[in-house]
Simulated scan of single mutants.
Amino acid sequence: MLEFGTVSLEWGTLLFQVIIFLLLLALVNKYATGPIANVLEKRRQYVANEISTAERNRQEAEALLAEQRRLLDEARAESKAIIDRATKQASDEAAKIVSEAQAATERMKASASAELAREIEKAKAELRGELTSISVLLASKIIEKELDAEEQKNTVDKFLTQVGDRL
């Protein structure tokens, strides 16, 4: 038995506590420290892999950027050469191209106008059809009976003449 002032320790208790402590230390080392170290190592490898991948991607991007710049410079030089040749031959061809473009534009405008008019008429017809079915449904609900086909057509025609150009 050891005594330190008012505190006293028994050798058996002290030895038991040291054994328990060492046992707990071994268990923590086996079940906590090892797996944590493995997780940290995997994380370190993952981060290192991501960094190397990012570096590789950056180098590839720089190479692609240099290639694109080179191609852009070549395209600029080629376009300048084409423009120079075109300006030498362009005086007669320019007038022809402009007149053809104007004619094509006029044809496209006329075609677009006609198509737009057809679409408007189609939309009006669809709207009239929907309005007809809704009107018939509403009227049949109101008078609690269904109309036969002839009565329906007459009712619709009468309604459409009243509505007329409001659509």
Rank of each mutant, 00 (worst) to 15 (best):
A110H: 06
P35L: 09
F21W: 04
L116S: 08
K80S: 07
A77F: 08
A114C: 03
K122G: 10
L2A: 15
R69A: 02
V156E: 04
Y31P: 02
A26F: 04
R69N: 08
Y31M: 01
I19C: 01
E10L: 00
Q17D: 02
I51F: 06
V47Y: 06
A112T: 05
E50Q: 11
R43A: 13
I142L: 12
G5M: 07
A61N: 05
F16L: 03
G12I: 00
A81C: 06
E144W: 08
R69I: 05
E3G: 01
V136H: 00
L14P: 00
L160W: 03
S135C: 04
L167C: 12
E144V: 10
T155C: 06
I19E: 00
V156D: 01
G34H: 11
D73F: 11
K88Q: 05
A75S: 15
A95Y: 13
E60S: 03
R118D: 06
E3Q: 06
T161I: 15
L116I: 02
T132Q: 14
E41P: 04
I97M: 13
L40A: 10
D92G: 02
L64M: 08
R43P: 01
F4W: 15
L65Y: 07
L147K: 00
D73T: 15
Q59D: 12
E55M: 11
N154V: 14
R76F: 15
A125E: 07
E119S: 13
T155D: 01
R76T: 15
K141H: 13
A123H: 10
S79W: 06
L65E: 09
W11Y: 01
K141M: 12
S135L: 10
Q102L: 09
D148R: 07
G164N: 12
K42A: 11
I134F: 08
A101C: 05
E3C: 00
G34C: 10
A77K: 10
L15N: 05
L167V: 14
T105D: 03
V156W: 02
E60Q: 04
S133T: 09
L14I: 01
Q45P: 00
A32Y: 15
A77S: 09
Q162A: 14
A103L: 12
I51P: 03
A94N: 06
T6G: 02
S8Y: 01
A86C: 09
